[in-house]
């Protein structure tokens, strides 16, 4: 199978500070990938390299077996959607904001088509914000805004979805909801890559996890295999107990 995204020998540094060192990884379609690691490990940078927001000083990022550098920005916008860690909220209505996700598909002076409006309705339905369509995003609660942001990214209808800490600042219900929504995209064939802090969420939802520490890819694999007490202690400097979920059998990590 052709890799959706592939990084070959990718290194990145801000000024002189090396943030990522010689990263090699491959991402397949229809899989949910988690990226974990302590603060400053290079997780956000890795994500930004995958959508060409940052350009690697060494190595190549491939999308569909073609170097990311050869894509135009507007072509990339039809391939990869990004939910950044920090978003700004302005007095757009929810529907207007979701429709911004369709802007790569119509011309500069054009307007969203019927099909665009239909897609916006659909993703608002899926994310459970259809009833908020005409409310201002700036008036919504944190959880509702996050769903509007997700809906905006879903509206791009891309094969790759990158998310930088999509569950931070959300309560437990919204965290689970967000991950379920992402899982649904995966079922539809999308490659989902999310930076997550909650290892239990990773263990419950991700098919594959990358563990970063100090700019190095320490290990990767199925979360059940990867999250051993030794690894957690080595990377996060905390000792944990590993229990098993009584129903699913997935590991539960308890500090």
């Amino acid at each position: 199978m052709v890799d959706k995204i592939r990084l070959e020998g990718v290194s990145y540094s801000y000024e002189r500070e090396s943030v990522l060192k010689n990263i090699n990884l491959r991402l397949q379609p229809s899989r949910f990938y988690g990226i974990v690691g302590p603060n400053g490990a290079g997780k956000s940078t890795l994500l930004k390299l995958m959508d060409a927001y940052l350009k690697p000083q060494q190595g190549i990022v491939f999308l569909n077996d073609r170097s990311l550098a050869t894509y135009s920005l507007s072509d990339l916008a039809r391939e990869i959607a990004m939910v950044p860690q920090h978003s700004h909220y302005f007095p757009f209505t929810v529907e207007e904001m979701v429709l911004l996700g369709r802007t790569p598909f119509y011309t500069r002076l054009g307007k969203p088509s019927e099909a665009d409006l239909e897609i916006a309705k659909e993703v608002m339905e899926v994310t459970g914000i259809r009833h908020l369509a005409h409310r201002l995003v700036s008036d919504l609660s944190g959880g509702e805004r996050q769903r509007a942001t997700l809906a905006r990214a879903f509206a791009q209808r891309t094969g790759v979805l990158l998310l930088d800490e999509p569950t931070t600042h959300l309560d437990l219900e919204y965290q689970i909801n967000t991950c379920r929504l992402l899982k649904d995209r995966v079922e539809e064939g999308v490659t989902v890559v999310a930076v997550l802090h909650d290892l239990n969420l990773v263990a419950s939802f991700c098919d594959h996890v990358f563990v970063l520490d100090k700019g190095n890819l320490i290990t990767e694999g199925v979360p059940t295999k990867v999250f051993t007490p030794d690894l957690i202690e080595e990377v996060f400097h905390v000792s944990i107990a590993r229990l098993h979920h009584p129903v699913s059998g997935r590991p539960i990590i308890v500090p």
């Binding site: 930004k48 959508d51 060409a52 927001y53 920005l73 507007s74 990339l76 916008a77 039809r78 990869i80 959607a81 990004m82 939910v83 950044p84 920090h86 978003s87 700004h88 302005f90 757009f92 904001m97 911004l100 996700g101 802007t103 790569p104 905006r152 791009q156 990158l162």
Partner: peptide, 14 residues
């Protein structure tokens, strides 16, 4: 309009 979402989001929207 897109730029109001922030630089990273605007970049990913082309």
């Amino acid at each position: 309009n897109v730029y109001l979402l922030g630089e990273e989001a605007a970049h990913s929207l082309g």
